[in-house]
């Protein structure tokens, strides 16, 4: 159990760092959705299934799509 938690945390922090570091905005947004997905697994492990369901539907799905539409409208690369 602890091993799984440590692996999840490493993926979470690496995803957050890649969100900030990446020059490609699409890669940054996908890393951000990975962070939301791991947060959803965290909520499930913390015995909060309501919050996990909300984060999975809204944080991983809709939020990513809204960012993607904005990137499609503006520019893909960060200058």
């Amino acid at each position: 159990m602890d091993i799984l938690l440590i692996i999840l945390t490493v993926i979470l922090i690496a995803g957050a760092l890649n969100t900030v570091r990446s020059k490609d905005l699409v890669a940054a947004v996908i890393s951000g959705s990975v962070v939301s997905l791991i947060a959803s697994i965290y909520f499930y492990l913390l015995q909060a299934p309501d919050v996990a369901l909300t984060e999975a539907a809204i944080g991983v799905g809709l939020s990513t799509i809204i960012f993607m539409i904005t990137i499609r409208r503006t520019g893909r690369m960060e200058e």
Binding site: A16, T19, V20, L25, A28, V29, G32, V35, S36, A39, Y42, F43, L46, A48, V51, E55, G59, S63, F67, T70, I71, T74, E78, E79
Partner: peptide
């Protein structure tokens, strides 16, 4: 400097605060 990156940073802060609150309970 990029505005989309700034909004992404705000959503990261949002997720962090949510995890902190749920783990306190």
């Amino acid at each position: 400097k990029n505005m989309i990156k700034i909004v992404l940073g705000l959503t990261l802060i949002d997720s962090g605060v949510n995890i902190l609150l749920v783990s306190l309970g």
